[in-house]
Design a protein around this nucleic acid. Structure first.
Length: 326
DNA sequence: AAGCTATTCAACCGCCTTCGA
DNA sequence: CTCGAAGGCGGTTGAATAGCT
């Protein structure tokens, strides 16, 4: 935290206007309760607009950028305060495995949370947990000789060298397993074959009904987990030797959900597959966007996403795909 | 109780993109 | 088409605080 700047100290705002002819004296540092109140009052009365105008009209000696940041990260009435729930943590971990450090994109999937909050949470808590988990895994998995302790969650999924890994921490295992399941299920969602889930299956909000991820159906003999839902059963590899209730359907759902306008195909994984990506054939002319894959079309009104025009190559570059031999 | 270290998180910085003149 | 202003974003900083010795 910055030192409270209650002394009235002023600085020149360096807000990408260094070369500007006009330099305005602005306060920096922590916001005082009075400043907060001014901004809240103004925002509630006038609503959002040009931040420079807001700063001026609200009687704040702050640059517009600072006002925007304060409002978005702290003063917004719809902000959720407090610790991240296990569900939120699951979602963050999974989305980060797909999107990387695109904090705003991740935040867009977590109502009431800000990109800054998620970024801080990741850099402090999750990174640390993944690292310690990796250390545990390297101790318990002599086969993993890669020595790659990348903090990326996808590494957690693949176990460093793509082989099975032993993870004892239940929560982390849940996260990683979710990532595995959703990654595989996501990939199966556009495979060749007959569509199993169509637009009509979506609810009035364009969301898929909750998936029943039934780990009791785990067929450990064949190394597969069965996920039932949408009148279909999707089989995914039981990478971690999961035996009992392991997962959080909300996480799976959050990732599998697609845009109401997108036709979502759901197929049974071909057990004979040796390489997952050999079976991945896009329905979008080979130019499937990540939004379609992970449900970014499922946003609320007014939200705009800037995931970008990732093609599959870009997408897979961000996702570690385990190699299986069945 | 005091000093030290680690962690948290609000805020800043600077780059990039978008938009309007 | 160009340019400048504003918004948006990810990375980084550093003070406050918690935890440990």
């Amino acid at each position: 935290m910055r030192k409270p700047d209650h002394t009235g100290r002023e600085k020149v705002c360096s807000d990408n206007v260094v070369s500007k002819a006009i330099t305005m004296k602005v306060r920096k540092g922590l916001w005082s309760p009075e400043e907060d109140q001014k901004l809240i009052n103004y925002m509630l009365e006038k609503g959002q607009g040009c931040w420079t105008d807001i700063a001026r009209n609200a009687g704040l000696q702050r640059c517009g950028k600072s006002c925007r940041l304060r409002w978005i990260n702290y003063l917004r009435p719809d902000l959720k305060r407090g610790a991240f729930s296990p569900q939120e943590q699951d979602i963050i971990l999974h989305l980060h495995s797909i999107l990387g450090n695109r904090w705003s994109q991740i935040a867009a999937r977590l109502p009431g949370r800000t990109d800054n909050e998620i970024k801080n949470f990741w850099n402090s808590t999750i990174k640390k947990r993944l690292k310690s988990n990796m250390s545990d895994a390297s101790i318990t998995s002599p086969n993993d000789s890669s020595g790659d302790l990348s903090l990326d969650a996808s590494t957690c999924i693949s176990g460093g060298d793509g082989m099975f890994m032993s993870i004892h921490d239940h929560e982390i295992m849940t996260m990683c397993t979710d990532s595995c399941l959703t990654s595989r299920t996501t990939r199966t969602s556009s495979m060749h074959g007959t569509p199993m889930l169509m637009e009509g299956d979506l609810d009035q909000f364009g969301h898929l009904p909750p998936l029943n991820l039934d780990s009791s159906n785990c067929d450990t003999n064949n190394g597969f987990l069965n996920i039932s839902g949408y009148g279909d059963v999707v089989e995914v590899p039981n990478m971690f030797g999961i035996e009992t209730g392991i997962t959080n359907p909300a996480v799976v759902n959050s990732v599998i959900e697609g845009d109401v306008n997108a036709t979502i195909h759901h197929h049974v994984l071909d057990k004979k597959s040796t390489h997952v990506n050999h079976h991945f054939s896009g329905d979008s002319g080979g130019n499937i966007k990540v939004e379609e894959l992970v449900g970014f079309g499922n946003h609320w009104p007014g939200d705009s996403f800037r995931v970008g025009d990732w093609d599959l190559e870009g997408f897979f570059a961000n996702v570690s795909i385990p190699h299986f031999d069945f």
